[in-house]
Computed example of a mutant assay.
Amino acid sequence: MPPKRRTRIKICGLTREADVRAAAALDIDAVGFVLYPGSPRAVTPERAAALAALLPPFITPVLLFVNASAAEVAAGVTAVPHALLQFHGDETPAQCAALAGARAWLRAARVPLTPGATGFDLLEYAETFAAARALVVDAHVAGYGGGGQTFDWTAIPWSHPRLRAADRVVLSGGLTPENVTDGVRLVRPWAVDVSSGVEAAKGIKDAQRMAAFVAAVRRADAALPPSPAV
């Protein structure tokens, strides 16, 4: 009998010890730290290291960079040497590969809120960034993520071989405890990534909303058929 489906969960933009502890007590897989000074959720590499030290085994720290220099990325990975890297700016495939070195990395894909508005082609983008371990498919908003906006999930052929949602897509952008069940049901992604949807204020997570988000994902998992990709 195929194994039961389990969507992976990442909670991003944590800045406080209490929030890291609350998140780590839940059935999640990764925690994100934003190393982008322009973000209200930004932390320094040293702060990220202190917060990551609170994580138990098998919850992965993820360092989010936006158009960072090689020195900035090096400072991050020195501080949190076991982290996964996420590039969320305008980095090219070559820049991502050079900055990551031998490390696995994720690439954000910023989908327009109106399909086709900027000529963005997610399938072409996925092929261009084929070396990324996964695509974090986010909404294109002013700035770089955390805008609380969703894009049209029904406008994308998620099962296309270039996307392979079930084993390569991390669904992001405006997810909340109220809508993530629909997101999992429609997209069937490998993982979901939430930030603003579980906050009391920017950079301040709400423990009850984090728990409600995880519960909503698990309800969606329970309602879907087992996936051979799990």
Rank of each mutant, 00 (worst) to 15 (best):
A117G: 15
T78A: 15
A71C: 08
V111Q: 07
E72H: 09
A100D: 08
L85V: 02
A83Y: 02
A79G: 03
G116I: 11
G89K: 08
E91I: 03
P93V: 04
P115M: 05
T92V: 07
S69H: 03
W105I: 03
H82S: 14
S69G: 12
V80D: 04
E72S: 13
G116Y: 04
P115W: 04
E91T: 04
R110K: 15
T118Y: 10
A68N: 06
Q86L: 11
A98K: 09
A117M: 15
G101F: 03
A68I: 04
Q95A: 14
W105P: 05
Q95P: 11
G116M: 13
A75R: 11
A108Q: 09
A74V: 06
R107F: 02
C96H: 00
R103Y: 04
E91V: 05
C96E: 02
A100G: 07
L99W: 00
A117F: 13
G119R: 08
T92D: 09
H82C: 14
V80L: 01
L106Q: 10
G76H: 02
P81D: 00
A68G: 05
H88P: 09
A75T: 06
V77Q: 13
A108P: 11
A102E: 15
L85D: 00
H88L: 06
G119S: 08
L84Y: 02
A71R: 11
G101Y: 01
T92I: 07
L85S: 03
L113A: 12
D90W: 04
D90M: 07
A70F: 05
A100V: 06
F87Q: 05
P112T: 10
T118D: 15
A100W: 01
A117T: 14
L99G: 07
R103V: 04
P112A: 08
A98E: 12
A68Q: 02
A75S: 12
P112H: 10
L84C: 11
L85T: 02
L106M: 13
A94W: 01
A79Y: 01
A104Q: 15
F87V: 08
A75Y: 03
A98P: 07
C96W: 00
P81E: 00
E91H: 04
A79M: 00
F87A: 08
A104K: 15
D90C: 09
R103F: 00
H82P: 10
G116S: 12
A75K: 09
P112L: 10
L84D: 09
A109L: 13
G116Q: 11
G89H: 06
A70I: 09
A104N: 15
G76D: 02
A70P: 12
S69F: 03
F120M: 13
C96M: 03
T114N: 12
G119Q: 06
L113V: 14
G116H: 10
V73N: 07
A68W: 01
L113F: 05
L99T: 07
L113N: 08
V77I: 15
A79R: 01
T78I: 12
P81I: 00
A108D: 12
E91N: 02
F87Y: 08
A68D: 06
A100Y: 04
P112D: 11
A109T: 08
P112F: 05
V80H: 02
V111S: 07
A100S: 12
L113M: 12
A117P: 14
G116N: 11
A102R: 15
R107D: 01
L113I: 13
G119L: 06
P112C: 11
A100F: 00
R107A: 01
V80Y: 01
T78H: 14
P93I: 03
G76N: 01
A102Y: 14
H82F: 14
L113D: 07
